[in-house]
Computed example of a mutant assay.
Amino acid sequence: MPSLKRFAFLLLSLILVRVGNSPFSVAAQTAGTWTPSDPSSVVSQTKPDQRFFNLAQLYLSRYLGEAVWSPDGRSVAFITNISGRENLWTVGIAGGWPQQLTVSDQRQTSPAWSPDRNFIVYASDRDGDEVFDLFLYSISTGQAINLTATPGISEETAIWSPDGRTIAYNVKPKTSSTYEIDLMDVSSAGGLSQSGSL
């Protein structure tokens, strides 16, 4: 039993040493009294040469999102915000400047090529409400139509059937915590003038 007490004492001593060397306690010593139950009394250390960013500068950062190969392996469709907002782009594997397919202030995500490479289905978040609709983009015409248009219900992450006539996708009402899987016959999608093979 004495060895257990000794071990507990050593462990507590190590913890106190680690806490005593933490940036929060050092800052608290320099800033005044630190009260564990008062978060406003915790002050982190500062670096005199640290560069600060305002909100506008933070939103100037650019990134590359999801990317998928075309079925023939000659192109990549991807999401990026290099033009200011998350839109759908493609680029050939030979290189060159990418082509922006969607021009929207909405956030696009989850692109998926049709097996014949004539269409890309993607999800779009309307006005940042985290409720996505599925859109079908025609490579040949540059048109996109909303396949779902269901306010209050989110449809996401579509995949194509091997024959290119059907998509499967996740669906969830905004008030629900669970997803289901739905199927849609894309070949019957109206309103899209196309020279493709749907």
Rank of each mutant, 00 (worst) to 15 (best):
Ala56Met: 02
Val17Asp: 00
Ile120Glu: 00
Val17Trp: 08
Ser124Trp: 07
Leu55Ser: 15
Arg62Phe: 00
Ala28Tyr: 06
Gly65Phe: 06
Thr90Val: 11
Val131Phe: 04
Phe132Met: 09
Ser44Ile: 02
Asn54Ala: 00
Gly95Ala: 06
Arg18Pro: 04
Ser37Ala: 12
Gly96Cys: 13
Gln29Gly: 07
Ala77Phe: 01
Ser114Asp: 02
Ser41Asp: 05
Glu86Asp: 11
Ala8Met: 13
Leu134Gln: 08
Ala77Thr: 03
Glu130Cys: 03
Ile79Pro: 01
Gln108Thr: 11
Val76Tyr: 13
Val43Met: 08
Arg117Phe: 05
Lys47Gly: 07
Asn118Ser: 09
Arg51Asn: 09
Trp34Asp: 01
Ile120Val: 12
Asp38Ala: 10
Gln29Arg: 15
Gln106His: 15
Tyr122Ser: 06
Thr33Glu: 14
Leu12Lys: 12
Gly92Gln: 15
Asn87Thr: 10
Val76Glu: 12
Val17Tyr: 02
Arg117Val: 04
Gly20Lys: 11
Lys47Met: 08
Pro71Ser: 10
Arg107Gln: 13
Glu130Asn: 12
Gly92Cys: 03
Thr30Ala: 10
Ala31Gly: 00
Ser75Thr: 09
Ala31Met: 00
Gly84Val: 06
Ala94His: 06
Tyr137Gly: 02
Thr90Pro: 03
Gly20Arg: 11
Ser22Cys: 00
Gln29Leu: 14
Ser83Tyr: 06
Trp97His: 01
Ala112Ser: 15
Phe9Ile: 14
Ser124Tyr: 10
Thr109Cys: 05
Ser37His: 13
Ile93Asp: 03
Ser40Cys: 00
Thr35Ser: 11
Val19Ile: 14
Ile15Phe: 12
Phe53Val: 04
Ser13Asn: 11
Gln106Trp: 14
Val42Glu: 08
Asn81Val: 08
Ala77Glu: 07
Ile93Arg: 13
Ser61Cys: 01
Trp34His: 02
Ser13Thr: 15
Asp125Trp: 10
Val76Thr: 08
Glu66Ile: 05
Val103Ile: 14
Ser110Arg: 09
Ser110Val: 01
Phe24Tyr: 09
Leu11Ser: 14
Leu136Gln: 11
Ala27Pro: 02
Gly128Cys: 06
Tyr63Ile: 01
Leu12Asn: 11
Thr102Ala: 07
Arg51Gly: 05
Gly32Arg: 03
Val131Asn: 01
Ser124Glu: 15
Phe132Asn: 13
Gln45Tyr: 03
Asn54Phe: 00
Leu58Val: 13
Trp113His: 04
Thr46Glu: 15
Tyr122Thr: 09
Asn118Gly: 09
Leu88Gln: 02
Tyr122Arg: 08
Ser13Tyr: 04
Ser138Val: 06
Gln99Glu: 10
Tyr63Phe: 10
Arg18Ser: 15
Arg85Ser: 07
Trp89Ser: 12
Thr102Trp: 07
Val26His: 06
Ser41Lys: 07
Leu10Ser: 09
Val43Cys: 02
Ser114Val: 09
Gln99His: 09
Glu86Lys: 08
Thr80Ile: 02
Val42His: 10
Ser44His: 04
Ala28Asn: 12
Val131Gly: 05
Leu88Cys: 05
Leu60Trp: 01
Leu10Asp: 07
Thr80Asp: 11
Asn21Val: 03
Gln57Arg: 12
Ala27Val: 01
Ala112Phe: 06
Asn54Met: 02
Gln50Thr: 08
Pro115Cys: 05
